[in-house]
Design a protein around this nucleic acid. Structure first.
Lengths: 173, 173
DNA sequence: CATTATAGTGAGTAATCACTTACAAATTTA
DNA sequence: TAAATTTGTAAGTGATTACTCACTATAATG
């Protein structure tokens, strides 16, 4: 991975996240990255290939994070860590997650292996905690995380009071 | 509002919602609507004007709905109606709400008067119900609605068990 | 050192973009 | 019914799009 190749990935992520994939032209990316436009196609074949390379990068990071949550055996502790997720997004990953949520609406949710494993580990946690409908509870947590992550990524929020409200509803406080 | 004008609005909403604003060309809209491309510009000035006309249409509908919720005086009942919102989206409004959530990520949330009133009415409901942090609770409800609406609009869900989980957390069941 | 593969450029390409213009048909108004 | 206004079309416009191609500079390899 050369420096210019990395520049292309960085610039494309920034522009895709802030202005949208379709309204970001390859020439704009090239200018932003300080490379010739042709280089984008040399390294990534086409615009779609560039997008996929970016998504692959981000997936590796997020999978590592999901994995660390799933390793926690105690269900209560695991639920707690899960509910913390939207509040501990590193700010240098904001661009990726903005892109992630945008694409959700334009290309459908990108389902991958790690996500299904995570979903299942949540369901199991609720089972162990004796909830009456673990599968629906897991779905609710997912919706909750998505909603809160949206607030975090798009608005100024005060994490502490919001987190307190959430934890109280799951009797974790 | 002529028939062709209405056709343009319908086609544009459908295409904007399914393929995104930026990747929907005016010529594609014209073909889909069965009109000449020039007519779009005659009636809506430019592509942005067409988008705004669509958003204005949708805002009127949603404002009416928010208004009906806010009229409910009993705080418990009002909270209950609010939490029902994502489950009662009429299916012929799905396109609008998909567009709405897409634009949230590309142009920032579209804040309008009705939305702020609604937000405040939620806060007041939590105040009356004696919650310790009404403002954070209102923010949480908003995030929850957004997250659940996303599930409803993008995936197949079973509303009843999910709604049950939510109501139980607010002791409304 | 010579050869080969890779990294990188800049000037193209046809197609498509949002939008305009000149003009005709239909409708409204006086 | 005559004039004026609105609705509608078809064929353009220059700019921009994703992408290609012929080429050079750099680095790796034997």
């Amino acid at each position: 991975m050369t420096e210019k190749q990395q520049n292309i990935l960085n610039s494309a992520l920034r522009l895709f996240a802030t202005e949208g994939v379709d309204s970001t032209s390859t020439s704009k990316i090239a200018k932003h990255a300080g490379v010739s436009e042709g280089l984008i196609f040399r390294h990534f074949t086409n615009k779609e290939g560039l997008l996929q390379a970016i998504l692959e990068n981000g997936r590796e990071k997020s999978d590592a994070y999901f994995h660390s949550v799933m390793q926690v055996k105690d269900p209560k502790e695991r639920l707690l860590m899960t509910l913390h997720l939207p509040f501990v997004i590193p700010s240098d990953e904001y661009d990726f997650w903005r892109l992630f949520y945008t694409l959700k609406w334009q290309r459908g949710p990108m389902e991958h292996e790690g996500m299904n494993l995570f979903r299942n580990s949540m369901k199991e946690a609720f089972e162990e905690l004796g909830y009456t409908n673990p599968s629906a509870e897991a779905q609710l947590v997912e919706a909750l995380i998505d909603g809160v992550a949206t607030e975090v990524l798009l608005k100024e929020i005060y994490p502490k009071p919001l987190l307190d409200c959430i934890l109280e509803k799951y009797k974790l406080k």
